[in-house]
């Protein structure tokens, strides 16, 4: 058994890896739909990104517990897709109601993005990755948080770049999603530069 300290250290390493070297968006292509659709303005991109960080961290923890303590003892592992998506949907719904009830100001800035998140592949993807890689609970927390922050970083950078692009003359066929994908490719190239920093 690993000691607690070693596990926390592993969680930190996994967290940094999830932000930089294995960015969930730029190296696994997850969460592309909102990435191309909601990256026009830095403000909205930041709101959506913050919501993703929050939801991803907590759904990873909940899904880990559900998998470990419900599905594995019952030998129902194949059922995980359905259980995970139900947990994610329920969690998002609950958070939306709580925020609406207790903090209308936060609801104004964050709440509108929450329904979008249920169908964000990155959330389900992070849960599935953590099962396949057999992370422990502490490492899962680091992974969920790191993946969320990685996604936030990618969409913020993209929104910043796209705002600068407003005045540029992009070839007709490339406007909109086309140029977004080219920029994403260049960003992915830049992020590959981080490979080897953590080892």
């Amino acid at each position: 058994m690993n000691s607690l300290g070693a596990e926390i250290w592993q969680a930190v390493v996994v967290c940094f890896a999830a932000v930089f070297t294995n960015n969930i968006l730029l190296s696994y292509f997850l969460g592309m739909c909102p990435f191309t659709a909601v990256s026009r303005e830095v403000r909205t991109a930041g709101g959506l990104g913050a919501a993703v960080v929050f939801v991803m961290t907590f759904t990873c923890i909940l899904n880990w517990m559900a998998y470990r303590y419900v599905l594995v003892p019952l030998h129902l592992e194949f059922f995980r897709f359905i259980l995970f998506i139900i947990i994610i949907a329920a969690f998002v719904q609950l958070v939306e109601m709580l925020i609406d009830r207790f903090s209308p100001a936060l609801y104004q800035s964050l709440g509108i993005f929450l329904p979008l998140i249920t169908v964000n592949c990155a959330i389900l993807g992070a849960s599935l990755f953590m099962i396949i890689r057999e992370y422990s609970l502490i490492v899962t927390i680091g992974y969920g948080f790191g993946s969320g922050v990685g996604w936030l970083l990618a969409i913020l950078a993209m929104a910043g770049i796209r705002q600068r692009f407003n005045e540029s003359r992009v070839p007709e066929g490339l406007r909109g999603p086309g140029i977004t994908l080219i920029i994403a490719g260049l960003m992915a190239l830049a992020f590959i530069g981080f490979t080897g920093v953590l080892s």
Binding site: L181, G185, A188, I192
Partner: peptide, 17 residues
């Protein structure tokens, strides 16, 4: 590698559009 996927898809969009 991942960037290749972004570039090729962008080219496909460019051509079809």
């Amino acid at each position: 590698m991942p960037p290749g996927g972004f570039f090729v898809l962008a080219c496909v969009l460019w051509i079809t559009r």
